[in-house]
Design a protein around this nucleic acid. Structure first.
Length: 885
RNA sequence: GGGCGAAUAGCUCAGCUGGGAGAGCAUCGGCCUUACAAGCCGAGGGUCACAGGUUCGAUCCCUGUUUCGCCCACCA
C-alpha cells in the first residue's frame, strides 16, 4: 500500500497551490443576480500603510470562517475587501520618506505631494492584501476597493453635500484638539488620554490696588500668557469681596477681571481658577459666558506667538520653564505640588495635543445618532456579545458634534468653494466653477480634507456603488454581519450606523460581532517599542495557516484580551498533523474501494459504525449551532474533540479489526463508514482549516460532486444512518475497554502482554452487548482469553473494575502484584465512596426530595444505587485481595 | 468621577437559561502496538478571589470587598 499523502503535512506548498486555484476559478466571486440567499460582510479596511498584525489575523480569520461556512450552506457570499487611505497615518509615512531625502511636503507643493502618495500606494500599498491571502481570506478580490477610489470619492461628496444642504454640516470657530506635529485638528475620539504624574503650580496674581494676591493653581503655567480673567465660585466667602475687581497679570502686566462662575470647584486647589479661554475647553465656555477676550498665544506648531510678549518664539515646553522661573524670581510662585492628570495625545503621533481656537467643519450628529440608537433598540442591528450594546448606547447618548476637517493634504478634499467676491460658500457635488451666490468665478476650494473616518463610515454602501442604485446594493445591503474589534466601535461602527441609516434608509448590518484584542502571552499590548510583536506571517511560515487559524478560532471567545502563546499554535499544528495522518490511514485502506458502489443506509452496520455516525451527526449539528451563535471556540473544540478523540482514538482503532480481517463484506462496510466520516469531517473543518481539508479532500477516491471542497455543501447531521441506542450500547463496550486499560495501566502491565479477562454481567442485555463487542475488547484492551456472560465462573484471585452493571475481573494468576491491586482498589473505593456519601446526603435531605424537579431526583437516585453497587463489589474484591496477603 | 470586563488545575483558558468542576499545554508512570513519538495507554492535580445573601441546591443569581485590566469624562 503506497500512501497517497506524504508522510508529514507540508503547509507551504499546499497553501499557495489551493489558494491560487480557488482564486483562478472564481470561487470567491459573488454575483448579484444569484438566486441563492445573500450573505455579505464588508472587511474592516486595513490602512494601506499597514502590515498584517495579530488583530487583522484574528479579525479576518473569523470573517473567513463565517464566509466559507455560509458559502457551503448555500448562500451567495460577498466578502467585500479593500483598504483605507488612512489620511494622517499615510501622510506621515510619506512625509517621513521625504524627510529622508531632505525634503518636506511644502517643498513639493500639494499636487506633487499627493502624486507622491499615490505612487507610494501603487508600490507598497498592496502588501497587506497579499498577507490576507496567505491567511486564506476568501474575499471577492475582483471587487477590491480603496476609500480614495473614484467611486467612493463620489459617495463622499454626495453625502457631504446632502448633509450640508440639510444643515447637518456646518462651519464654526471654536476650540478643537490640535496636533502641533501633524498640524491638523483632530476629533475628540482621536485624542488619547494618558494619566501622567505632573505638577500643579500655584501662582500669585496681585490684586489691583491692594496688597492681596489671588493664588491660582494650574497644570499649565505657560498658558497664563493668555489669561483674560480669574474666576472664583460665586458663593465663596473667601473671595466674595473681590468679585468685580481686577488682578494684574504677572509678566505681561495686563489687567484682567475677577469673575464669579459656578464652574469653579471651591474644594480644589485654592478655589481660584485662571481663565484662558483660547487654550482650555472649560475656560472657553467660561469665556463665552462672560464675554471675555480670547487671546491665542500659540502658533500652529506650538510656539508662543506675538501675543506672548517677551516669550514669543519659545516652544511651549521651553515657555513653561521660563514662565515658571520668571514668576519664581518675582516671588510669585507660591508652591509646586505633584499632581496626576490626563494629558491628551494625538492618536497617530503621540504628541501632546493643544486646545486651539480655529475655524473647522462639523457634523451635527445628534439627529443621526438618534436613528442609530433606535435601530439597535428595535433590534434591526444586533450587537454580539450584547454587553457591547451598553457601551454603544452610552457613547451615542453623549455624542458631540464631529469635527471632520483636517489640515492635511492626503484625503478627500472638502467640496466647498469660497467666493473671493462675495464671501459665500458653494458646496457642490461637481467641482464648482462659479459662486452659487453671486456667480463670480473667483473661487478657491477649501484646502482642508475630511477625517479619514468620514469615508470609512460610508464603506458598507460606498463599496457597493452608492449613490448609484446598483444590483450589488440591492442584493447585498444591508450586510449580514460586521466583524470587528471593540477598539473601533465608536470610530467606525457607530458612524457606519449613522451614515448607513442616513444614506440608505436602512442599517448597514444586521449583526455586529465584536471580538477581543490580541495581546502577547503576558497580556501586554503588542507593540514595536516593547518588542513583543508576534508577526502573523512568521507564524504561518512556522506552523501553517490552518493551525494558526484554528488557534485564533479556538481563542475567539475571550472577553477582551486574547493572550496569544505560541505553544498553543504548536498544539494545533499537531492537530493538523493528526488529521493528516488519519487521512493517510484512511486512504491507505481505501485502495480497493469505490465509494459510489455501496449505499451506507442499506448496510448492516457494526456497533462501532453506528456509534461514530451518531457522534458525527451530533457534532455537525452542534458546530452549525455554535457558528450561528458566533461561538467560534465551541465550534473549534467540538471539531477538535470529534477528530482526535472520537474518530482517531476510537473509531480508527476499532475499524482496524475489520479492515485487517478476512471478512470482505465487513471490510467494505468499514471502508464506507471510514470514507463517509472522513469526508464529512473535512467539510465540517473546512471553514476553519481550508487548506489541509482541500488537499485531503482532493486525494479522496471516487467522483467528487464539485470541483473544490469549498464549494461542497456543509454537513448538517442529516442524512446519516442514526441508531442512537446502538451507539449507547457501544459506549458500554468502550467503558469496559477503559476499565481494563485502567487496571493494566495502574498495575504496569506491559502493553505487549495479553491479559485474560472475565466479564461478569448482571443482566443478559449487557452480556449480549459485550459479546457483540468482543472483538473490540480483545483488540483495544489487549485481551487474550475472554469470558463473558451472566453468572460466569469467577477466578479466585482477580483485579476488579466495574462498568455499568458489569464486573470486570482480570485473574492475577502470577501476572500481577497483589500490593499494587490493593492500592488501586483503595484509591478506587475512595472515589466511589465520595460519590455515595454525596448522593446519599442529597437524597436524605427532605427539602431536596420535596422541591427538586423529578428528573433530577430520578437521576440522582440512579447514580446513588449505581455507586452503591460499585462500592460493594470493589469492597468485596479488596477483602479478597487482603485475604491473600 | 462614571461605566465595563477579568479573577476556575502549575500555565493559557472553556464552562449555554443554577442540579455530581472541563480542555490544551506542563507534570508523573508505561509504550518505537505497520496513520501519526507532532504519537499511543494510564495517572496525579482545583475551599471555582474573599465575605454575606437568595435557594432543597450556587463556579453560575443578588449585595459588598479586594486585586488586575480596559473604555469614557472639561475639575484647573
Amino acid at each position: 500500500m503506497e500512501p497517497k499523502l506524504s508522510k508529514a503535512y507540508d503547509p507551504a506548498d499546499v497553501e499557495t497551490r489551493w489558494y491560487r486555484a480557488w482564486e483562478a476559478d472564481g470561487c470567491f466571486h459573488a454575483v448579484a443576480d444569484s438566486p441563492k440567499p445573500h450573505y455579505s460582510i464588508v472587511i474592516p479596511p486595513p490602512n494601506v500603510t499597514g502590515v498584517l498584525h495579530m488583530g487583522h489575523a484574528l479579525n479576518n480569520t473569523l470573517q473567513d470562517v463565517l464566509c466559507r461556512w455560509k458559502r457551503m450552506t448555500g448562500h451567495e457570499v460577498l466578502w467585500m475587501p479593500g483598504t483605507d487611505h488612512a489620511g494622517i497615518a499615510t501622510q506621515n509615512v510619506v512625509e517621513k520618506q521625504l524627510a529622508g531625502e531632505g525634503l518636506d511636503r511644502h517643498a513639493l507643493g500639494r499636487e506633487e505631494f499627493i502624486a507622491r502618495v499615490w505612487k507610494w500606494r501603487a508600490e507598497s500599498g498592496g502588501q497587506i492584501i497579499n498577507q490576507l491571502k496567505r491567511l486564506g481570506a476568501s474575499c471577492d478580490w475582483e471587487r477590491e476597493r480603496f476609500t480614495m477610489d473614484e467611486g467612493l470619492s463620489k459617495a463622499v461628496r454626495e453625502i457631504f453635500v446632502r448633509l450640508y444642504e440639510e444643515g447637518l454640516i456646518y462651519r464654526d470657530n471654536r476650540l478643537i484638539n490640535w496636533c502641533p506635529r501633524c498640524h491638523t485638528a483632530l476629533s475628540d475620539l482621536e485624542v488619547e488620554h494618558d494619566e501622567k504624574q505632573g505638577h500643579l503650580w500655584h501662582l500669585r496674581y496681585p490684586v489691583k490696588g491692594s496688597p492681596r494676591f489671588l493664588v491660582v493653581a494650574t497644570t499649565r503655567p505657560e498658558t497664563m500668557l493668555g489669561d483674560t480673567a480669574v474666576a472664583v465660585h460665586p458663593e465663596d466667602e473667601r473671595y466674595a469681596d473681590l468679585i468685580g475687581q481686577t488682578v494684574v497679570l504677572p509678566l505681561l502686566g495686563r489687567e484682567i477681571p475677577i469673575i464669579a462662575d459656578d464652574y469653579v470647584d471651591r474644594e480644589f486647589g485654592t478655589g481660584v481658577v485662571k481663565i484662558t479661554p483660547a487654550h482650555d475647553f472649560n475656560d472657553f465656555e467660561v469665556g463665552k459666558r462672560h464675554s471675555l477676550e480670547f487671546i491665542n498665544i500659540l502658533d500652529s506648531s506650538g510656539f508662543i506667538n506675538e501675543n506672548g510678549g517677551p516669550y514669543r518664539g519659545l516652544e511651549r515646553g521651553a515657555a513653561r520653564g521660563k514662565v515658571v522661573a520668571d514668576l519664581d524670581a518675582q516671588g510669585l510662585l507660591e508652591k509646586i505640588d505633584s499632581h496626576a492628570n490626563a494629558v491628551g495625545e494625538c492618536y497617530r503621533c503621540k504628541t501632546v495635543i493643544e486646545p486651539f481656537l480655529s475655524l473647522q467643519w462639523y457634523v451635527n450628529v445628534q439627529p443621526l445618532a438618534a436613528e442609530a440608537i433606535k435601530a439597535v433598540q428595535q433590534g434591526e442591528t444586533r450587537i454580539v456579545p450584547t454587553q457591547w450594546e451598553k457601551t454603544y448606547f452610552e457613547w451615542m447618548f453623549n455624542i458631540k458634534d464631529w469635527c471632520i476637517s483636517r489640515q492635511i493634504w492626503w484625503g478627500h478634499r472638502i467640496p466647498a468653494w469660497y467666493c473671493d467676491d462675495c464671501g459665500a460658500i458653494t458646496v457642490s457635488r461637481a467641482d464648482a466653477s462659479a459662486c452659487s451666490h453671486c456667480g463670480s468665478r473667483q473661487l478657491r476650494q477649501e484646502t482642508d480634507v475630511l477625517d479619514t473616518w468620514f469615508s470609512s463610515a460610508l464603506w458598507p454602501f460606498s463599496t457597493m456603488g452608492w449613490p448609484e442604485r446598483t444590483e450589488t446594493l440591492a442584493k447585498f445591503y444591508p450586510t449580514s454581519c460586521l466583524v470587528t474589534g471593540f477598539d473601533i466601535l465608536f470610530f467606525w461602527v457607530a458612524r457606519m450606523m449613522m451614515m448607513g441609516i442616513k444614506s440608505m434608509g436602512e442599517v448597514p448590518f444586521t449583526d455586529v460581532y465584536i471580538h477581543a484584542l490580541v495581546r502577547d502571552a503576558q497580556g501586554q499590548k503588542m507593540s514595536k517599542s516593547k518588542g513583543n510583536v508576534i508577526d502573523p506571517l512568521s507564524v504561518i511560515d512556522e506552523y501553517g495557516a490552518d493551525a494558526f487559524r484554528f488557534t485564533l478560532t479556538a481563542f475567539a471567545a475571550m472577553g477582551r484580551d486574547i493572550k496569544l502563546a505560541t505553544e498553543r499554535i504548536a498544539g494545533y499544528k499537531a492537530f493538523a498533523n493528526k488529521l493528516w495522518n488519519a487521512a493517510r490511514f484512511t486512504l491507505m485502506n481505501l485502495e480497493d474501494f469505490d465509494p459510489q458502489v455501496i449505499d451506507l443506509s442499506k448496510l448492516e452496520l457494526s456497533p462501532a459504525d453506528r456509534w461514530i455516525l451518531v457522534r458525527l451527526a451530533e457534532t455537525a449539528r452542534e458546530v452549525n449551532r455554535a457558528l450561528a451563535e458566533y461561538k467560534f471556540n465551541e465550534a473549534a473544540s467540538l471539531l477538535y474533540a470529534f477528530t482526535w478523540h472520537y474518530f482517531c482514538d476510537w473509531y480508527i482503532e476499532l475499524a482496524k479489526e475489520e479492515l485487517y480481517g478476512t471478512d470482505l463484506a465487513a471490510k467494505a462496510r468499514v471502508q464506507k463508514t471510514l470514507f463517509t466520516v472522513l469526508e464529512e469531517l473535512l467539510r465540517l473543518l473546512h471553514p476553519l482549516m481550508p487548506f489541509i481539508t482541500e488537499e485531503i479532500w482532493q486525494a479522496l477516491p471516487g467522483e467528487r460532486p464539485c470541483a473544490y471542497i469549498m464549494l461542497a455543501p456543509y454537513p448538517t447531521g442529516e442524512g446519516l444512518p442514526q441508531d442512537v441506542e446502538g451507539a449507547a450500547r457501544m459506549e458500554l463496550v468502550m467503558e469496559v475497554v477503559r476499565a481494563i486499560r485502567n487496571i493494566r495501566g495502574e498495575m504496569n502491565v506491559a502493553p505487549s502482554r495479553q491479559v485474560t479477562a472475565v466479564l461478569d454481567c448482571k443482566s443478559p442485555a449487557s452480556a449480549e452487548i459485550l459479546k457483540g463487542g468482543e472483538r473490540y475488547i480483545r483488540a483495544l484492551a489487549r485481551v487474550g482469553e475472554l469470558t463473558c456472560g451472566v453468572g460466569v465462573a469467577r477466578p479466585d484471585q482477580a483485579a476488579t473494575q466495574v462498568a455499568g452493571d458489569v464486573e470486570i475481573l482480570l485473574p492475577l494468576a502470577g501476572l500481577i502484584d497483589i500490593d499494587a491491586e490493593e492500592q488501586r482498589l483503595v484509591k478506587e473505593i475512595a472515589k466511589v465512596e465520595k460519590d455515595v456519601t454525596l448522593f446519599a446526603k442529597k437524597l436524605g435531605n427532605e427539602a431536596f426530595i420535596a422541591k427538586a424537579p423529578p428528573e433530577v431526583l430520578e437521576k440522582d437516585r440512579g447514580k446513588l444505587s449505581e455507586a452503591q453497587e460499585k462500592l460493594e463489589i470493589l469492597q468485596q474484591s479488596l477483602e479478597k485481595i487482603r485475604g491473600l496477603k
